[in-house]
Amino acid sequence: MKLKKQFAEFYDEITIKDESEPLREKREILQKDIEDRFPDELASHGIDLKKSDIEIFDQGSYKYNTTIKSNVIDRDVAVKIPLDINQYPDTRKIKGYLRDAIDYVAARTVNIKEPCVNVAYFENGEEWMHIDLPLYAECDGKVYLARGREFADNYSWEIADPKGLNQDLCDKINGNAQLRRIIRYIKKWRNEKYANSTLDHEVPPSIGLTYLACDYFQEVTTPEGDDDLTALQQTMSAIRDSFILTKENGIIVKADITRYIPVEPFTDIFATMKESSDSYGVKFYNRLSKAVENLTNAVNVESEHDAGNYVQKVFGEEFEVPPKQVSSAATVSKKEQNFG
């Protein structure tokens, strides 16, 4: 098996296991603020909400433990309140009230985004963290997500099942250590390749990548332990093969990937990407193909050093390339790279 040590070290390097204390503290203060101030804010607009009826719960990678290191910490915390959505159909207003309730300290910058209320934290003029607050309304036993930007024409309460989604992913990932690692590797690859992307909906969303990894996961173990390189290569290659391609004159003009969310609203996770531009899917497909090509080379070459170089092309510099081994037996021992 090749690159066992390098994959293990790389995984340790990119993994975030727990919230850092400053993040936890900020999140707890924010949650308390929501509980303390959101009811009052709603009351001033004639909406009755008891503090005890607010439900706040984890969502996203921290919930199913697939978080990776990134420049800006990104945390998802769901806020759910009981609300008659027929009486209050304007999600923009309700999201605005949530914003107004918490936007009173200099440390936070609160903005309304399409699927959530976004709370960003800055230090020395630079954002170091944001907490996304998707806002849900519970009405007649169903849960709805508040969608729509502050001044957008399109807004709606979209039926949703955030807890069902959490449960589905936890069931798939928990107890499957190699799958968890593969998800993190793929997310890292995405961050690496889309580091400079500024276009909305161009970047494949984490939830989509996570589901694709779960769907196409190929477990690979050997007597020496898990072979993450081969598992990743096979999984990513299977994901690539699930694209539906449209070619014109031999050139790919459209590359569609589809993954329906398994809970309400049962929509396609990649729908917005597809609707935004055909080129996004093509770019996703091409980048994925490139990664598969590099990983396949890594699987096929004999030397660990060469294999490491191929994998580094997928993940960037944080993946370490093992030193070149000199073939002559007499010189092997002295070429080991252990400095004094």
Partner: peptide, 14 residues
């Protein structure tokens, strides 16, 4: 003891 980027000490220690 309280790095923003990573939790380096356990929550109990903190």
């Amino acid at each position: 003891v309280c790095g923003k980027d990573l939790r380096r000490i356990s929550h109990e220690t903190y």
